[in-house]
Design a protein around this nucleic acid. Structure first.
Lengths: 204, 204, 204, 204
DNA sequence: TCCTAACCGAGACGGTACGTCGCGTCTTAGG
DNA sequence: CCTAAGACGCGACGTACCGTCTCGGTTAGGA
């Protein structure tokens, strides 16, 4: 078949990429990341722990940050945002935010997120990648929740969805990054309630 | 006078710290910071531009981040949050947030804030210093605004002030750091209105 | 061949050491050494002149002194002590000492030798290396000259060879290091004659 | 009296130099010198141990080496070469060299001498000072011993005194600096005997 | 069954910045 | 005028990572 033939032709000639090496590198990066934070780990350390060559790492990941992105993304891939349609905006937001808030505060992800956000500021290419992997999916999910609320008539049709998303996620990120107070279930409830209250009352 | 005499005796023995050198270092740090971001500047570069010795820098600032903190704090010291009692929560919050949002988005402070927040994650001492200098003052100011609103009966007396502060500042930090949308006056108005709406409506 | 195969297997795994870099470093060290002396040259200067990295230098030479030792040894390797059997102790010693005395006084080696001898005092490992490279070979050569003289019956069989070697080399080193008088051919002749006279007359 | 008046005028106006400070500095320098060697001590360390200011040290000693010279000279001042006329060259040389050889090998003076000789190579002014303090006196003393031997007819009147002095002292310095063999009484005896034999036998 | 391309590890390479140390000078207060 | 304390500009230290590069060796498909 043509397609299969094409694929077969696209299969590179020489030795194929080592899957075990790829996994070892991502695993080593994840471990070091959560242990020491991004800034204090080095490519040398990742290579040594993964028993891999630095050249191999650089062949597949252009920078430490993109490697990091892959590493935590592959960890979070399991934590897929599930479909949850409870029938009310409050219920949907709770269903969406509670597991997420628990997940990001359960492990020292704050240092990883903070480091990646620092990289975003100075590297637009990385910024795009960061958004596509870590930001857009969750915002899209929350956006559908808001869209359903509009359909149900709970909130105004002309609601500024982007501002609403920032109102929802902003407080969580702030506590995560500044660490001035606990990111617990109580806070999640309060914040979700605030957001619902802000959107269901027509803006004066 | 006795007090003056005491102070004179407390004056340390050796050569006093050079004020001109201190200013030159902070100035050089500020300039390089806004030009290139924290991660890509070096102590060597700061020392060279300030015509100072690296040893002098390290004598007074244990780390690049604490130097940065001092540098931008001395810049923002002029930007003191003014007293603003407009008579309504909406008015007060606008008066508080509009100049601040304009200021932090006018210059490339995002990369600086992001880098400092990254450092906060891994260095508790620095975290305390960061809070005392950059976080606490602004939150305290906003807290008095909320307190006045409680006095006026605009919002409930049992309002969770901390959560309210996060609801207010979170969205701004999120746009600042993620850069996914403009941090303009329109956004400030929308967010302030959201916060007021969230707090004036009793939580269900 | 088996042996060759073994050698081929012993070839270390990674990128082999750069021979051109090694030579450039030794050459730069030699030049700077004779220009400015050991104490006033820096590893930075050597690295810059050799267009090499400081890390590369430290990878192969633990200290400035061992680098120096290698550098002047590779210069002196050409100045190999030739075989000279003239038939008499006086003739042999002249043949041995005249070229050497001329060589060490022709260039500013005194500052190098002095600096290395200073290092010898505080670093036993370096002392061993210094002896093996710069001291032992010449003393061994002179020792054979004395041995031949014993065989010929010119000097007593129970001559204290070590003391004789010190009697021979000591005066040269003293003038070289203290610089109180010229280290010229006349001095070489006088000293050699003194040594011969001291050894050929039976000690009372 | 005029002279006294002149002296009184030459007496500087202000606070006189502190003798206790001078002694403390020399003492600290001596201790550190023999403990660690010249190259690994610092002016800061001397100042700290002597509880003196660095400025005070630099006011009176232009360099570390000249301070060192003063320090060991003040130690050796007690070890004055005594007058010793035994009636024979051998006896005089033994009387001269035995105490000296014992003294310089009893403590770790080798590292001090070696460091000073290294400085001599690169600093002519220091070289002159070094000779005047440590070299000339001893050579002058030995020269008078040789002069007496000439008067007594033990050695030739046209003996090259400078070469003879180098023949005498060279072996001792060589063993002291190279440390390849013990600088014991036996070696002193052997060397003195060699020197006497070399000088009493007419050069061919 | 070879050939050859692309992979892999190990590790040396030229750089840049690090944080520290010592130098010799200076600026204070005080004896 | 001297002394102590100690900050200063300067330059070198030895180390850690960076991203690149050369090796020998491995693993596949294509000839």
């Amino acid at each position: 078949m043509a397609t299969q033939g094409t694929i077969e032709h696209l299969r590179r000639r020489g030795r194929p990429r080592s899957e075990s090496s790829r996994r070892a590198i991502l695993r080593a990066a994840s471990e070091l990341l959560l242990e020491h934070g991004l800034s204090s780990i080095s490519m040398d350390a990742v290579a040594e722990r993964a028993r891999a060559s630095k050249a191999t790492i650089y062949r597949w990941w252009p920078s430490k940050e993109l490697l990091t992105l892959d590493a935590i993304f592959s960890e979070w891939a399991t934590l897929a945002p599930e479909r949850c349609d409870t029938g009310s905006l409050t219920g949907d937001l709770h269903a969406l935010m509670l597991p997420w808030a628990r997940a990001i505060s359960a492990r020292p992800y704050a240092r990883v997120i903070a480091a990646l956000l620092a990289k975003v500021q100075s590297d637009p290419d990385f910024g795009r990648e960061y958004h596509a992997r870590l930001v857009r999916p969750r915002r899209a999910h929350a956006a559908t929740v808001f869209a359903m609320a509009i359909e149900r008539g709970e909130i105004a049709p002309d609601t500024d969805i982007e501002a609403a998303l920032d109102l929802l996620y902003g407080p969580f990120y702030l506590r995560l990054l500044q660490g001035h107070a606990a990111l617990d279930d109580r806070f999640t409830h309060t914040t979700v309630d605030h957001v619902v209250a802000a959107l269901t009352r027509p803006l004066t």
